[in-house]
């Protein structure tokens, strides 16, 4: 039983750390840089911040 509780706490802790770091990272603005749109468009990564910014600009 203690083992199960430790497992749940560990998972919750790591989730907390991860999402926390994600939120913190999103708050730090990226320095402006020029991106090659053609290369960027070919990539299918969902988590790419540059891509989101590009689509917002458009």
């Amino acid at each position: 039983m203690t083992e199960a509780i430790i497992a749940i706490i560990t998972v919750a802790l790591i989730v907390f750390i991860y999402i926390g770091s994600y939120v913190l990272n999103r708050r730090v603005p990226a320095p402006y840089q020029k991106v090659d749109e053609a290369t960027c468009g070919a990539c299918s990564n969902y988590a790419c911040g540059v891509k989101q910014k590009l689509s917002e600009e458009r």
């Binding site: 199960a4 497992a7 749940i8 706490i9 560990t10 998972v11 919750a12 989730v15 907390f16």
Partner: peptide
């Protein structure tokens, strides 16, 4: 609110995994 949601998400994920593990 965000912190609370995070904890709930983590707990639920942990619970689900532990549950399946015991099974």
């Amino acid at each position: 609110k965000i912190a609370g949601i995070l904890l709930v998400v983590g707990m639920v994920a942990g619970l689900a995994i532990v549950g399946v593990h015991t099974l």
